[in-house]
């Protein structure tokens, strides 16, 4: 059995905000008609949270649901349980037009925290990170410099950043550079 490792284990940088790699997390993509009761109830059943509104994410502990697109929802699970949960969801939805994929190993995950967390992200993404627009609970797919990413406002000073694992080093360097000491803009 190979040792499972996140792309940049233990990477942490401190500056105008704290940036750290969050390690492995289970992520399951479900594509399908989200209005179908079976799709909806399967996603909420596995995650144990309410179905999120458009552009939102809900979570309890390590489980949660992230709204990705009008026909796509992402289930968050503990990493070790992702494979089993994927099989369960695929089985329940076997007769429903849908796609279920365990994408845990395709992703990397970072946390940016601190009073200037919004500012660090604002330097890298065209998304509006203003506190009035991007409130806690908001989840948005966007880009960081040249790569696609998703940003999730966990609370007012904590942002989780999802990106593709193949771009982990790039995203890590971007965030570290944007959080360099002495680079606060003080916009928000």
């Amino acid at each position: 059995m190979s040792d499972l490792a996140s792309p940049l284990p233990g990477v942490a940088v401190s500056g105008i905000a704290e940036v750290r790699e969050l390690g492995l997390r289970g992520m399951i993509t479900i594509k399908g008609d989200l209005a179908l009761p079976l799709v909806n109830s399967t996603a909420t059943g596995v995650s144990g949270v309410d179905f999120p509104d458009r552009g939102q994410a809900n979570y309890v502990g390590e489980r949660g649901l992230c709204w990705m697109a009008p026909d796509e929802i992402m289930v968050l699970t503990p990493y070790a349980e992702a494979a089993g949960d994927t099989a369960h969801i695929a089985h329940v939805l076997r007769d429903t037009h849908s796609l279920v994929a365990n994408v845990s190993d395709a992703r990397c995950l970072f946390e940016v925290s601190g009073a200037s967390a919004r500012e660090v992200l604002s330097k890298l993404t065209p998304a509006d990170m203003h506190p009035d627009r991007f409130r806690p609970g908001a989840f948005r797919r966007t880009r960081l410099a040249q790569v696609p990413a998703a940003v999730w406002m966990r609370d007012d000073q904590t942002i989780e950043v999802f990106a593709f694992r193949s771009a982990a080093r790039y995203v890590s360097d971007l965030l570290a550079n944007a959080a360099r000491p002495g680079t606060a803009v003080g916009y928000y």
């Binding site: 458009r54 552009g55 697109a69 009008p70 065209p126 998304a127 509006d128 948005r140 797919r141 966007t142 880009r143």
Partner: peptide, 9 residues
Amino acid sequence: CGVDADETE
């Protein structure tokens, strides 16, 4: 998705 997307997105 209801967001105001910048041209670069």
